[in-house]
Each structure stands twice: as C-alpha cells, then as structure tokens.
Design a protein around this nucleic acid. Structure first.
Length: 433
DNA sequence: TCTGGGGTCCTAGGACCC
DNA sequence: TCTGGGGTCCTAGGACCC
C-alpha cells in the first residue's frame, strides 16, 4: 500500500500561513518575472483563472474581484516543504519526496486503520505547519495519486464524490463497486501519466472516464501508445509497476535558465548573465558530488513578440570533466561568444550541464603546463561554497558575473515578493499579542 | 508593456561496427 | 525474382511530470 500526501494550493497556502488576511480571498502566486499564475487559491480557481495563465491577462481582476498576485518566494516554500515532509514521513516506514509539495509514503508493515492514521497525520500537519493537505491511499502509486485527487475534489466541491472521502481517501477500504463508481465519474485526463495529448486521443476514441480506460487491455494500450502508458494502465488495474524511490539518484543534467526582466541586446550584459547561470549550475553540481563533461549555452528572443527571431544553442565539450566554476564559466562564455549576433532583443538565456559523472572517479592527467593538484582545485571551490553558505548567495563570486555596485541589467521583475519569514533573521515573522 | 523553470523517459532513425 | 544478423552509440523529437 502507498499513501500520497500533498499540500493544497501549496504556494498560496504557504503565503497564507504568514498573512492570514489572505484566507478566503482569490490569491495567485506568480512565476519568475511575475509572468504566469503557478498556484491559485480555491477562490482564484473559482474566478476561472487557469494554471499557467499569464498575469497580464488576469490582472484586471485585482480591481474588480479583489485578486491578489504575489511574486514567487521559493526560499519560503522550500523551507515550508521541508517541515511538511518531515511530518508526512510519520505515516509509514519509507518516503519518496516527489516534488516540493508531494510525497509518496510506503505503508508496508503499518498496522491498524490506515484511514484514521492518515487523518491524524493530516491534522498534525495543519496544526503544526499550517498547510492543509490531501491524502490518498491505494495499492499502487498511480492509484494513490488518483485517490488524493478524489480526496481534494470531494472537499472542494461537495457532492462531486461521497462526502466521507474528503481530505483522506483510502481506495483500499472501498468495496469494488464503489471504486468503479468513482472511476466512472473521474475524467481519464486526471490520471498521473496521461497528459493533454494522450488524454485527447483517448477521448477521441471514446475512452472518457478512468473506468473506460481501466477496461482496456495492456496489449491494446501498448500497441497504440507504448510501454509507458501500459505501465500506467497496469498500475490503475492494481498491479504495482512503479517502485517507491526513497533514495533518488543524482541528476543526469543540471540547468540554470532565466527569462530577463527586459530585452537584452549587448554581449557584455549577456556574458554577465551567462556567467551567473554557469556559477549557479556549478554550485548545484558540486552539491550532488558530480562533474560535468559538457556545457550547453543558449539564448533566444521571445516567442511571443513580433520582430526578428533568434534562437541558438551550442554544446561546449570540456577538456576534462570538471565542477570548477572557473572552467564552467569560461566554457559557457566562449560558447556564448560563438553563437552571439548583435541586433536581437534577447529575452531568455541559460546553461545546462551535461554528461554528468561522479566526482569519485575523477581522472587525473599528464599536463605539461602549470602543474596542479586535483585536491587544490576542489579546496578552492569548497571554500567558495562555504563562504556563500555563511554570508549569503554571491558573497564570493567570479568577476565576470558582474558586481554588486552596478545594478544588474538582466534581473527579473519581482514586484510583489513577500519576506522570507522563516529563513532570514531580518525578515522573520513577528507575532503580536 | 506583458507568457516560468527544471527535470525524466522512450522511440525512431542514422552511422557505424563485426 | 533475389540483398544477413546482431549490436552500440548518438541525436532529435515527443510525451510526461511538478
């Protein structure tokens, strides 16, 4: 048995904890550059605001409907997530943290009434952290996510499902006929692993509900859509195919990319941005103990704006695998210079580290220039990481990433950001009696 | 004026090997 | 008329997830 736990409207709920006056109002949290809505309160959903909807299209609702738009505060959300995950872990012996607001819990060996246990954990998370959660329980991961969907929908839209399934929904405790009724009232597109494209194809074939889908045969599904969807089908039929992954393997690629707050045309400014992206990516790389064999750099104009288009990328092989910021920045800037052309309003750029490998297997070399020791290089980098950890991001950085005296010309727009209530001493929340 | 960022996996096709 | 069998590696593109 598996449980799936996730926070309702997670980013908005995290903001609500520190600004209770937002409760009951339509609130959205915006992506970087205050671009799109990436989390919506129930009231915002009720206004018809879609996931990913551009802010400029819904902004008029500030006046007419009291809509509140907040810039994303990922530091706050990350910290609230850690707290929520540690409580969710109390549900069973193993946990897979699947995303910032979701985890799967393995329930193997857990005795007693699972539904009651889940309700208790849910109350604890609400009381101690302030985040409302949904919990789904079922024999497979895919079914547990679906059960959670039912738990949430039953709470948000009374009458859509039996009321007693609200907040916590345990498929394992349901008679088969009740489960069929639930599957028959749930659209096939709600299933984890069925996206827009395949959802539309299934609909066109007359497979409209989850029950319709579950009644197909694995062979049919495999023949038409492949092994991935076959696995989803089997999971829905109750056959576990996706293991709990409680010890995630290191990333195979690491990216750092950004849209700019305004168009950039000058190479010098781009060089600063790309240096910064490569530095950030290098930090992530060292954190997971890897080396990169190649680095990709790209820049492009906005796909939404008229005018001449530009979009280019280049993969720069590194002479030898490295996690040294200086090598990675150098390679990224060389790549940028090779693809750059003047005369375009560039709106986005980024780097990706590719061909990652463990730093345990670093290959030495015969080098006929200045001799160096591998360990000296990593000492410098870990000194940098330690300083930045203690004194804040960018306290020590590479010169080509710009300096703090001159304001960044390529920064993001973030006009509505809330304080880092839980992670910064000078922004800590103050309780008043 | 204005549209995010970061990942994974699978498949097909081409080049190349013996 | 008719054109082997088995394999690897790489890339691009498509689909999905949050």
């Amino acid at each position: 048995m598996y449980a799936h736990v996730d926070g309702n409207n997670f980013y908005v709920s995290a903001e609500n904890v520190f600004r209770p006056s937002l409760k009951g109002r339509p609130v959205v949290v915006l992506s970087n550059n205050d671009g799109c809505c990436i989390s919506r309160s129930n009231e915002a959903k009720a206004l018809g605001i879609k996931m990913g909807e551009p802010w400029f299209k819904v902004r008029h609702l500030e006046e007419s409907a009291g809509l509140v738009g907040l810039s994303a505060n990922f530091v706050l959300y990350g910290d609230m997530s850690d707290r929520m995950m540690s409580l969710a872990a109390g549900l069973g012996p193993t946990q897979e943290v699947y995303s910032i607001d979701e985890s799967f819990i393995g329930l193997h060996g857990v005795r007693g009434d699972l539904t009651r246990r889940a309700h208790a954990i849910r109350s604890r998370i609400l009381r101690w952290i302030g985040i409302p959660c949904g919990i789904g329980i079922a024999p497979t991961k895919t079914l547990s996510k679906l059960a959670n969907h039912v738990a949430k929908t039953a709470e948000r839209k009374p009458g859509s499902y039996p009321d007693d399934l609200a907040q916590v929904c345990n498929f394992g405790a349901l008679p088969a006929s009740d489960l069929d009724t639930i599957l028959a009232t749930t659209e096939v597109g709600e299933v984890w692993g069925i996206g827009r494209r395949i959802g539309a194809q299934l609909q066109a074939d007359g497979v409209k509900t989850v029950l319709d889908f579950v009644r197909l045969t694995p062979a049919t599904v495999r023949g038409r859509w492949g092994v991935v969807l076959e696995r989803t089908l089997r999971e829905l039929q109750g056959q576990p195919c996706i293991q709990l992954d409680d010890c995630p393997s290191p990333k195979k690629e690491i990216a750092c990319t950004r849209s700019f707050g305004r168009p950039i045309t000058k190479l010098e400014v781009l060089e600063e941005a790309v240096s910064e992206f490569a530095s950030r990516a290098a930090e992530k790389l060292r954190k997971q103990g890897s080396l990169a064999g190649q680095i990709l750099v790209f820049a492009h104009t906005s796909p939404h704006r008229p005018g001449p288009r530009f979009s280019r990328s280049l993969v720069v092989p590194l002479r030898r695998p490295t996690a040294d910021t200086r090598n990675l920045v150098h390679a990224a800037v060389m790549g940028l210079k090779a693809i750059y052309e003047p005369g375009f309003d560039l709106m986005k750029a980024g780097v990706m580290l590719l061909d990652l490998m463990s730093s345990d297997v670093e290959q030495g070399e015969l080098y006929l220039g200045e001799p160096f020791e591998i360990s000296d290089r990593s000492k410098l980098m870990s000194a940098m990481d330690t300083l930045n950890g203690r004194f804040g991001k960018g306290a020590v950085h590479i010169a080509s990433a710009g300096n703090s005296i001159k304001p960044k010309q390529w920064g993001m727009r973030q006009e509505r950001k809330t304080p880092s209530y839980t992670t910064s001493w000078d922004q800590i929340a103050i309780a008043r009696a």
